[in-house]
Design a protein around this nucleic acid. Sequence first.
DNA 1: CGCTCAACCCTCATTACCTCA
DNA 2: GGTGAGGTAATGAGGGTTGAG
Length: 198
Amino acid sequence: MKKSKINNQQRRFSDDQIRLLESIFESETRLEPRKKLQLARELGLQPRQVAIWFQNRRARWKSKQIELDYKTLRADYDELASRFESLKQEKESLLLQLEKLNHQLLDQKPEEDGNPGRDHKATIKSEPDTNPNNFLEEALDHRGFMDSGEEGGSKLQEIAESLDDSEKSTEKWYGFEFNGLIDPLCSSSSSHWLNSWV
DNA sequence: CGCTCAACCCTCATTACCTCA
DNA sequence: GGTGAGGTAATGAGGGTTGAG
């Protein structure tokens, strides 16, 4: 600084001065006026210089803290994003399984109850079931299919058996509230409600 | 009691200088 | 030796608080 040069003052504080200032800053980031005077005497500096050092030190601490906070938040976000992606993939794969199962159910049902398959499909289309539990239970009613050793079927059965009645409420599914997200008017098939999820 | 004003301190942005790769 | 980046002491603007009058 020009003024510093004019006053023939040192540009930087000595290591000893910094050490003492840092050790005090560790315990208190603000100085009382009396302590400031005492410290200035001890360091051979102007009280104003001590005050400015503490001001600058607080500013440095704050910007470091912001940097740390950013890193923490970024790590949290990345973790959540990766979890979201894997859940999304899981959902896609379950949806595919459901779709497959649905088709197989519709093809199989006419043989069991004697109704033509086309009519049954029409029934489902005209009465969309927006309740995931009903759909699940409906699907599981077809034990013949479930026992066929199909991978998707056994997974569905496993999920259903692991749920007691209280767990079958929609709110508990992945801790996610379905109500309001599924528009019954838009649900034209049994699996449609899942499409609005994730 | 409410006001003004000065003194003091703070934050924030910036400057001036130094050091180092 | 020149240069740009980064660190740091210091400055200035603007605002809050406090105590005296």
